[in-house]
Computed example of a mutant assay.
Amino acid sequence: MRYFTTGDLNKQVGDVTDAASREPIVLTRHNKSRFVLMSYEHYERMRSGIDPRRAHYVSEMPDEHAELFGEAIARLAKGEGYDNEP
Rank of each mutant, 00 (worst) to 15 (best):
L9H: 04
G49S: 04
E71R: 08
Y40A: 15
D83P: 14
K11D: 12
D15F: 05
P52Y: 02
E44P: 09
A74L: 11
S39V: 02
R53H: 12
E44M: 02
G49C: 04
L76S: 07
Y3C: 00
P62D: 05
T28W: 07
A20Q: 13
R47I: 02
K32A: 08
H42A: 15
E23S: 12
F4I: 00
T28G: 01
T6P: 01
D51S: 00
H42V: 08
I50L: 06
A55I: 13
S59W: 05
M38V: 00
D63C: 09
I50T: 03
A66F: 12
V58E: 02
K11N: 15
R22P: 09
H42P: 03
R54Y: 01
A20W: 12
V58S: 02
S48Q: 08
F35D: 08
H30T: 05
P62F: 07
E85L: 11
H56R: 06
E23C: 08
I25R: 01
M1N: 02
E80L: 12
N31V: 10
V58K: 09
I73M: 07
H65W: 11
T5A: 06
V36A: 09
R2S: 00
P52V: 09
V26I: 14
D18V: 03
K32T: 07
L68W: 14
A19V: 11
Y40E: 15
A20K: 05
L9V: 06
S39H: 10
D18F: 13
Y57S: 07
T6D: 10
E85D: 08
L37I: 11
V13E: 10
V26H: 07
V58G: 05
A74R: 06
S33A: 15
K32V: 01
H30K: 13
D8M: 04
P24F: 00
V36C: 03
K32R: 11
Y40G: 15
I73Q: 04
E67W: 03
I25S: 06
M61V: 09
T5N: 08
R29H: 10
E80G: 01
Y82D: 13
A20P: 00
V13S: 11
S33E: 10
E44G: 00
Y57G: 01
V36W: 04
L27A: 09
T28N: 03
G70F: 03
S21Q: 15
L27K: 04
K78V: 01
L9S: 04
D63H: 07
L68P: 04
G81T: 06
A20V: 02
Y43S: 10
E67M: 05
G7W: 00
M61G: 08
P52M: 01
P24K: 01
G49A: 03
V16P: 09
H65P: 09
E60F: 01
V16N: 10
K78L: 11
N10G: 15
V26S: 04
H56K: 10
H56M: 07
H65M: 12
R54L: 08
M38N: 09
R22E: 14
E41F: 06
R22A: 15
R34I: 02
V58L: 00
A74W: 02
Y43V: 07
Y82A: 13
D15R: 14
S33H: 04
V16T: 09
Y3P: 04
S48W: 05
M61P: 05
